[in-house]
Design a protein around this nucleic acid. Structure first.
Length: 192
DNA sequence: AGGACGATTAACT
DNA sequence: GTTAATCGTCCTG
């Protein structure tokens, strides 16, 4: 019996709740008939037009349109001229928010991941652009429905992560973002 | 039309 | 600790 996949109602909740509860869930990518998968170990919340670190601070643009869409969509964007980053859209339609998947612990399909990234296993998927490279996720998946039947990118339910295992911290890489947004503890990660 | 900069990474010194 | 890579997006004029 296959594992249950997270559905729209999981994502249609406050973004901080979704970011926290995504820890320990299993990100799965079906790629050329193979399962590439791992446990989510770090997430980050970006919440609405008031959040000056959130892309949607500038309102609805061609780039941010997906964040205004249905909860459970993938928001995949290109940055630094090189990298793709994966987010899950959250909250009700027309409210722009998402959770960035910053790291996973690889569990399935390691030979393929190693082929996509010629790097040691310890650094295969421990960054937001590393995991997209390992799992063959790019802009073609922007707007993709993670909850659709037959999806090739989705999240499987796994046991919840106990509170004692979770570290809360400020978000990473925000640069010149003003306070208070710079210091909001909206990054969640597995301890150890 | 031009420029600054970015939810990063890897390779330097 | 510093910096190049590399280009889409947004802001200014």
């Amino acid at each position: 019996m296959p594992a249950r996949r997270l559905a729209h109602d999981f994502f249609n909740r406050p973004t901080l709740t979704v970011a926290r509860e995504l820890l320990g869930q299993r990100l799965v990518r079906l790629w050329r008939g193979q399962r590439l998968a791992g446990y989510i170990t770090e997430t980050e919340a970006y919440i609405g037009h008031d959040d000056l670190a959130c892309h949607a601070r500038a309102g609805r643009t061609p780039r941010t349109a997906v964040m205004f869409g249905r909860p459970g969509l993938a928001y995949v964007y290109f940055t630094y001229g090189i990298h793709w980053l994966l987010n899950c859209v959250t909250e009700t339609e027309d409210f722009p928010a998402a959770v960035l998947i910053r790291a996973i612990r690889p569990e399935e399909g390691l030979p393929v991941m190693r082929r996509h990234r010629q790097r040691a296993d310890s650094v295969l998927t421990d960054g937001p652009a590393k995991l997209t490279q390992a799992l063959a996720i790019d802009g073609k998946l922007n707007g993709y429905d993670l909850c659709a039947r037959g999806a090739e990118l989705f999240i499987e339910a796994a046991p919840p992560t106990p509170e004692a295992q979770v570290i809360c911290a400020p978000r990473v890489g925000l640069g010149r973002t003003p306070e208070p947004w710079l210091s909001q503890p909206w990054n969640f990660k597995w301890k150890s």
